[in-house]
Structures are given as structure tokens and as C-alpha cells.
């Protein structure tokens, strides 16, 4: 089980102790998009930490994911301003359309859904971010349309 990306990260942290856990997990996630069972086991061997401990620490924070990202990674803001402007219904629509719960990725790895507390774009509430691109003042209907567009784009890509 060798993985050069992870090897490089762990090399940078040679001789590190348990205090290096979170930076290592962040770098691994930046490289791989998520924390897999294999990477958790690798990091555990490197830091001499049991996997249950690493999983416990990682699940404490919202920033870590345990499933690969979808091709379209949809982030719904549930911060205060977005909440007041109706992001709850937007999230419901996303869950219904994608048949996913926050933190999950669809089986075809096309979509993944995530909830965040605030993106710092409260003036545009409710905000949805898809692959880094911000969508402002999103209503449930607007989100359903955006998701449809993504699906259509995929179909044309597949045909073309």
C-alpha cells in the first residue's frame, strides 16, 4: 500500500508527535479530497496513534470528510443570515433532488453534499457554492434548476 502523495506529506512530518495530527489530516484531505480508511491507518502508523483516536478527533471537526468528493461538490450555507433567508428549505431541496444527506457522496461520484456554518457572503443569502462558484439568493426552485443543469451538462459531455 504505497501512495506517493501521502508518503510525501508524512515525510515532511517525520518524527512528529500526536500534536501534528490535525495538520497532517488537513494536508492529506487537501491531497486526496477526503480521509479514507487506508489513509487513516497510514497516518496512525506514522504517529503511533490508534485509528479510533484519529477517527474520534477527525469527526470532532466539521472540516474533515470520510467520503470522496463528487464531481459536483455542493455546499449549502446554514449560517444565521442564510437561515433567516430560508436556507433550510434550500437544503431540503438539495437532499431531495440528490437523494443524499449532508456529508454523503452519490454512488456514481457525481454529486456530494455538504453543510457549512457561514461562507462570509451573508449579503447574498441564501448562498450555495458549487465547485468554488458562488450562487446568490438561491431559492429551492433555483437550486433544482442548477442541479438539472449540472446533469444535462454531464449528458452532453457523455454524448460528445
Amino acid at each position: 500500500m504505497t501512495d506517493t502523495g501521502i508518503d510525501l506529506i508524512l515525510e515532511k512530518h517525520s518524527g512528529a508527535g500526536r500534536d501534528a495530527l490535525i495538520p497532517i489530516l488537513q494536508q492529506v484531505q487537501a491531497e486526496k479530497g477526503y480521509l479514507s480508511r487506508e489513509t487513516v491507518a497510514r497516518v496512525g502508523k506514522h504517529l503511533n496513534l490508534p485509528a479510533s483516536k484519529i477517527y474520534g478527533v477527525a469527526t470532532f471537526y466539521n472540516q474533515f470528510r470520510f467520503h470522496p468528493l463528487g464531481k459536483y461538490h455542493i455546499t449549502v450555507c446554514r449560517g444565521t443570515a442564510c437561515h433567516v433567508k430560508g436556507s433550510g428549505k434550500v437544503l431540503d431541496m438539495a437532499m431531495k433532488q440528490l437523494k443524499l444527506k449532508p456529508g454523503q457522496t452519490s454512488r456514481d461520484r457525481m454529486f456530494s453534499l455538504e453543510v457549512v456554518a457561514c461562507m462570509g457572503a451573508c449579503g447574498l443569502a441564501p448562498v450555495v457554492n458549487i465547485n468554488g462558484e458562488f450562487h446568490a439568493k438561491v431559492t429551492p426552485q433555483k437550486l433544482a434548476m442548477i442541479i438539472d443543469q449540472c446533469r444535462e451538462e454531464e449528458l452532453t459531455n457523455a454524448e460528445g
Binding site: P50, A51, K53, Y55, G56, T59, F60, F66
Partner: peptide, 28 residues
């Protein structure tokens, strides 16, 4: 010195479980 289980998650959603919340039979 086994650490098969630990606290997972946080706050009101915290629970005790194995790594990746799998069964004890495949844990350490």
C-alpha cells in the same frame, strides 16, 4: 492499550464507537 473505541463526533451528537463506526468484530 488497545483503543478499539473512542468518542466520535461532538456535542449532543457524540457517541462511543470504533474507527469509522464499524462493528466491534472488525475492530481491534
Amino acid at each position: 492499550g488497545v483503543s478499539a473505541i473512542d468518542f466520535i463526533g461532538r456535542g449532543s451528537r457524540a457517541f462511543i464507537g470504533t474507527a469509522f463506526d464499524e462493528g466491534l468484530n472488525v475492530s481491534s
